[in-house]
Design a protein around this nucleic acid. Structure first.
Length: 431
RNA sequence: GUGGGCGUAGUGUAGCGGUUAACACGUCAGGUUGUGGCCCUGAAGAUCGAGGGUUCGACUCCCUCCGUCCACCCCA
């Protein structure tokens, strides 16, 4: 016998309910406007890709690929993966569509869901949404600075100016190996003092020891070799230029501060040189609002001609949590022009036809539930947050009028010709 | 994957080892003739997360599982 099953959303994913949509839409439209302000164009890539794209692009050894991907075989036996991050797909699209034939750099942005199998907690979900920008085909530090500036512009527009940008350069692949070796040697000397989590990491990913939360490790990290001391001349030059460009942003963004953080390393293999994160100035662990950097090796790895790139991804859920925490954005719901209140079958038919005409003129008209009492319909109108009630009953039909009553402000109820034009004129003045 | 907190109507909460599980908001219906908000009345809505155990008796105590939240890990 079938039991009644109560379904809930799967673990780590949520419904974005109507009340939340107001804020979501504000954030998304701010993202779009900001990106366009810098000349970025929107791109949507598919929700799933061939698994190989991420294994190759993000890196086989990374946590994302090792244990966080939603991968599955489709009915044709193809291994597919729900997109865990946005950069590799955009680069795939760049290659696939020959975007190197466009004026470089190609500036792209997206707002899209990402999927990672991870244990959910505050600000961490199995499906989350990212606003991301990618600038492909330009090696100059100017474009690194531009990417960071987009982040600042976006954050400022949302009233979240009080953030710190942590920034570092991890050098190029050629110098990274010797840096990693020296780092490993440094920690190996004190291996006995390391907590066991970090002893494991020592072999696997020595760079990750730098951002360990273990106090013992942090003490050792203080005098660990710094990636900035291993930069090639070219990378060093790039780094210094970037910093002076960032200094130049300070007049336009008075609250902007960056902190060079030699423990900042990022968990995706494709990064080189510039890496950065935006953090609000509060405590907490899931608070990184942005993450990004330069990924010059990526497009080559994916089979394209070697092409530099730089970008960021920003978690919309975390931005929204931060907006709510700081109460930084005050958004009013836009109200409907009118609710149609109708008593009796004739009136209901007339009201529906009238509503159609009014909508044709661009007005927002909500029908009150048919067959209910006047009082019930008026209460409904009140809750609907509409500016007016348009009331039609037998009396109005006999007289060829509609009663138009203001709901959101003081004013007399008017009797208006039962015609769309006349009613529309009465509704419009308050728009 | 590892630790900790919490699971009572749609939501937020109260409750106590003992006959009908409470309150607020919300929903629905009313408050004389066709007019919202405030107010008033009434109704619906919970097998007290699931299973097992202790007990004469458990929403209340114990165990297991599940879910959820928080932290670690990692990241946005």
């Amino acid at each position: 016998m079938p039991e009644q099953q109560n379904y809930r959303a799967p673990r780590g994913v949520t419904d974005i309910l109507p009340d939340d949509q107001i804020l979501w839409n504000a954030v998304k439209s701010t993202a779009i406007l900001t990106a366009r302000q810098f000349g970025y164009q929107q791109i949507d890539t598919p929700v799933f890709e061939n698994t190989g794209l991420f294994r190759r692009g993000v890196g086989d050894e990374t946590d994302i690929v090792q244990k966080e991907m939603y991968s599955f075989d489709d009915l044709g036996g193809e291994s597919l993966t729900l997109r865990p991050e946005g950069t590799a797909p955009v680069c795939r699209s760049y290659i696939e569509h020959g975007m190197h034939n466009l004026p470089q750099p190609v500036r792209l942005f997206y707002i899209a869901p990402m999927f990672r199998y991870d244990r959910p907690q505050a600000g961490r979900y199995r499906q989350h949404h990212q606003f991301g920008c990618e600038a492909i085909g330009d090696t100059s530090p100017n474009i690194d600075a531009e990417i960071i500036e987009i982040g600042l512009r976006y954050i400022n527009a949302l009233g979240l100016s009080d953030v710190t940008v942590r920034i570092n350069s991890i050098g190029d692949p050629e110098t990274r190996q010797s840096y990693a070796d020296d780092l490993r040697n440094h920690y190996t000397k004190y291996a006995d003092d390391l907590p066991k989590v970090d002893r494991d990491r020592l072999q696997r990913a020595p760079l990750r020891l730098l951002d360990s939360k273990e106090p013992a490790t942090q003490r050792l990290s203080a005098d660990a070799p710094k990636s900035l001391d291993y930069l090639s001349d070219e990378a060093q030059n790039h780094w210094e230029n970037l910093l002076s460009l960032l200094d130049g942003l300070k007049s336009a963004y008075p609250k902007f501060k960056y902190r060079i953080d030699h423990t900042l390393v990022r968990g995706l293999d494709y990064y080189n040189r510039t890496v950065f994160e935006f953090e609000p100035s509060i405590e907490g662990s899931q608070t990184s609002l942005f993450g990004g950097g330069r990924y010059d090796p990526l497009i080559g790895k994916l089979g394209g001609a070697p092409t530099p790139g730089v970008g960021f991804g920003s978690g919309i859920e975390r931005i929204i949590l931060e907006i709510q925490r700081q109460e930084s954005l005050d958004i009013a719901e836009t109200s409907l022009n009118a609710v149609m209140v109708h008593i009796g079958d004739d009136a209901t038919a007339r009201a529906a036809a009238l509503a159609a005409e009014l909508r044709k003129q661009g007005l927002g008209i909500l029908m009150a539930p048919a067959g209910k009492s006047m009082r019930a319909q008026m209460r409904y109108a009140n809750r609907a947050n509409a500016n007016y009630a348009i009331i039609i009953g037998n009396r109005e039909i006999e007289q060829g009028v509609a009663a138009v009553k203001p709901l959101q402000f003081d004013g007399e109820q008017l009797s208006v010709d039962l015609k769309a034009d006349a009613i529309a004129k009465t509704l419009r003045p308050i728009l």
